[in-house]
Amino acid sequence: MKADITPAVGKLRVFRRLMSRRSAVAAMLVLALVVIPCAAAPLFARYDPSAQPDIIALRSQPPSFAHPFGTDPFSRDVLSRVLYGGRVSLAVALIATLVSITFGTAYGAVAGFAGGAVESEMMRLLDALLSIPRLLLLIAVFAAWRQLPLPAFVLIVGFTGWYGLSRVVRGQVLALKGQDFVASARALGAGRARILMNHILPNVLTPVIVAAALGVGHVILLEAGLSYLGVGVQQPQPSWGNIIQDGSDQIARLWWISFFPGVAIVVTVMAFNILGDELREALEPRQTGAG
């Protein structure tokens, strides 16, 4: 099935509307300031994140010109660790969100479009999955599998994060299925696959895009929490969560170790949340349109 019509959520129009909103621009700027240095960590970090240059002379240094975020008890540069850790945290969040968005949209769309027995079976399964507490499940999985490879971690987070979206998508598909333009497409000879791919899915893009932006922020928090608990990204690989954990036992004395990754998390998650809300605003007007 090829999508042979240009999907036209009016990309340009949405972008322009987004750029005309101050908090959206601010959120995007903040994200650029965080994401670019993290993504290109080897270019921005002055030190190897796991190098311990002088464990006696350079241990536990407060922020200084040479080490803007200070150093930890192993003499590692916290700024470099935050940058490399951000690379891991953001990558985990983006890929896991991509997995859950894709799967959630597909699941919800199929359930809503199929209807009947297929739909009710799929929704029962979803109810069952929803009743499993996600955090406990993740802790159990990670506790049972100590040396979890990072890709597996990402997939598990991704495959436990799609339930809510698939319900939203199913609801939208259900509503769209009854729309006149769907009936019209069918009356003009469009088959089921074409109707789903070309007529229904482009119309559920709005909640999906918004869910994606909000989802990234959510997964960053989740990863930080899990890594803080020691069941997420494993040392020596840094992530925002496990750097905070590094500093947590001496937080009063060596506050900078936990403080800077904490700020990074707060700022990034907030920016993603604002961006999500702004995207919703920017995408919605087309629904009402001009009479």
Binding site: D4, I5, T6, A8, F181, A185, N203, L205, Q287
Partner: peptide, 16 residues
């Protein structure tokens, strides 16, 4: 409501 809001009208005629 018989036209899909997210595609240009030309695309919709051409699709048929």
């Amino acid at each position: 409501s018989a036209l899909n809001p997210v595609f240009t009208v030309g695309d919709q005629v051409a699709e048929v």
